[in-house]
Amino acid sequence: MQLCVIHQICNSLKYVSYKDQKLLIADLKNAYQALTLEEAEYNFEEFKKKNGVKSILW
């Protein structure tokens, strides 16, 4: 099991079409570069809503 977030993201990108990868990564950066836990959680929820990610996967 990989614990590093960067490795998890890179491995997950193989399931995303190439044309969508840049947009997905840009949206995800808001969550993992947040300064507070609350901000990160909020940004990640927004990321999931915008990109159609199911909660069970995360």
Rank of each mutant, 00 (worst) to 15 (best):
E38M: 00
K22F: 03
M1A: 13
S55I: 01
K48H: 04
E41L: 08
D20S: 13
F44V: 07
L28E: 06
G52N: 13
E41D: 11
Y15H: 15
V5M: 02
C10D: 10
S55D: 11
L3A: 08
L35D: 06
N11E: 15
G52K: 06
L37C: 00
S55T: 05
K19P: 05
Y42G: 00
Y15G: 13
L3R: 11
D27C: 01
K49Y: 07
C4N: 09
L24N: 03
N51M: 01
K19Y: 10
S12E: 12
L28M: 14
A40L: 02
E46C: 09
S55Y: 01
V5Q: 00
I9D: 01
I6A: 01
V5C: 04
Q33Y: 12
D20Q: 12
V16N: 03
V53S: 07
L23H: 04
K49G: 01
A26C: 00
M1T: 14
L37D: 08
V5K: 01
F47G: 09
N30V: 02
A34L: 02
Q2N: 08
I9V: 15
N11Q: 15
L24V: 15
K49A: 09
L23S: 09
K50H: 11
K54H: 09
N11G: 15
K19L: 06
G52T: 07
F47H: 03
K48D: 04
I6M: 04
K14C: 12
Y15D: 14
H7R: 08
I56E: 13
I25S: 04
V5R: 07
L57C: 06
L3S: 09
F44K: 06
E41W: 01
Q21R: 15
K54T: 01
A34Y: 04
E45K: 13
Y18A: 11
I9G: 01
V16T: 12
E45C: 02
A26G: 00
K14I: 15
K19G: 05
E38F: 00
K14F: 13
A31V: 12
L23N: 13
C10I: 15
L24S: 04
K14Q: 14
Q21C: 03
L28A: 09
L3W: 04
A26D: 10
S17R: 14
Y42I: 09
L37Q: 04
M1P: 14
G52F: 07
K19Q: 12
K49V: 07
K54Q: 10
V53C: 13
F44E: 09
D20E: 14
E41G: 02
T36G: 05
D20V: 00
S12M: 14
E39P: 00
Q33H: 06
W58C: 06
A31I: 10
F47P: 02
I6L: 05
K50G: 02
I25V: 15
S17W: 03
W58K: 10
G52Y: 07
L23P: 00
K29S: 12
K50D: 06
W58A: 05
K48I: 12
